[in-house]
Nucleic acid binder design. Structure first.
Length: 286
DNA sequence: GCTGTGACCTGAACGC
DNA sequence: TGCGTTCAGGTCACAG
């Protein structure tokens, strides 16, 4: 499932193959794919037509295509299974094709939003003075953003009465981290997912952020090599998604540090993978 | 205001 | 073979 590195790969692909093109027509094939566009599918298409796509931006797992000639942007979230593909116009429709965007040029390609589980979607929104879609103003900067404020993140962590994995997944504190990279970063930092954040020291926060950035940069480095001219890829099943993971999905396999079998625990309707020896659970305070 | 929980959704994997 | 169940997880609405 797409997390920040995958979304960044998509952003780069869109920047190269879609930015600067003028929308000719929009076809919404599944209403749920534009459910965040309150005015509905017809309005979504009408507002896009004849507008030029500007430079593609990203924050965390959201990316957006600004309309170059007005103060609005097409906001995209890939959810768990979304893909944005640049395909030849005559290519067969994908099974889960939800939205098709055609362009007013002779390049012969179109933008397709394909999404099996329909957790993702596109919508059109006004932008703030600094170009951010207004509906994601609450989303924090991501740790690869040069303007991410490490000190402010540390203070926010200490103020929260929560645990470290919850905090990593809270997009209002830090964006772009999903279940996989949270487990990976916690394994690297030797932190149990239920560790309370209130007692975090500055060095501990700094170390954790360092591991989050390392994991994301490593995935980005691999992912960045795998899309070609016609395929703006966020395919969860192929290529760079086979990145080497140290924690996620390794239940029963030996910890790559100490050899202890890795464990999986149900957690918030998800799973948490950890090493019971390297990542000791916090002592329960009664 | 802050924190935690469940619904949404589809298809693969699994058990019987 | 076929059916039912479980699991995957990002976001948001809602409850406490």
């Amino acid at each position: 499932m797409p997390e920040l590195p995958e979304v960044e790969v998509v952003r780069r692909g869109l920047e190269r193959w879609v930015a600067g093109r003028v929308v000719a027509d929009v076809q919404v094939l599944h209403p749920r794919a534009v459910r965040r566009h309150i005015a509905g599918a017809e309005d979504f298409g009408a507002r896009l037509r004849e507008h030029r796509i500007g430079l593609v931006q990203r924050r965390g797992k959201y990316l957006w295509l600004p309309l170059a000639d007005n103060r609005s942007a097409v906001l995209a979230h890939l959810g768990m299974s979304g893909q944005l593909l640049v395909q030849p116009q005559d290519a067969p429709d994908e099974k889960h094709l939800r939205i098709r965007i055609g362009f007013d040029d002779d390049l012969g390609t179109e933008l397709r939003f394909v999404d099996q589980r329909t957790f993702g979607g596109l919508s059109l929104h006004g932008t703030t003075p600094d170009g951010l879609p207004d509906v994601i103003a609450h989303i924090a900067r991501d740790p690869l953003d040069p303007l991410f404020d490490d000190a402010a993140f540390h203070e926010a962590l200490r103020r929260r009465r929560t645990t470290v994995k919850r905090a990593l997944l809270d997009q209002s504190l830090i964006s772009g981290v999903g279940n996989i990279y949270a487990d990976e970063a916690l394994w690297r930092a030797r932190l149990h997912y239920e560790r309370p954040t209130t007692g975090f020291t500055r060095p501990r926060t700094a170390e954790l952020l360092g591991h989050v950035r390392d994991v994301m940069n490593a995935a980005l480095a691999v992912g960045g090599t795998s899309f070609d001219s016609l395929y703006v890829n966020v395919n969860g099943e192929s290529g760079y998604f086979d990145r080497s993971l140290d924690a996620y999905g390794r239940e029963g396999e030996p910890c790559r540090r100490c050899g202890t079998p890795m464990r999986r625990r149900p957690w918030m309707n998800r799973s948490s993978y950890f090493c019971p020896r390297c990542q000791r659970p916090p002592r329960v305070v009664s």
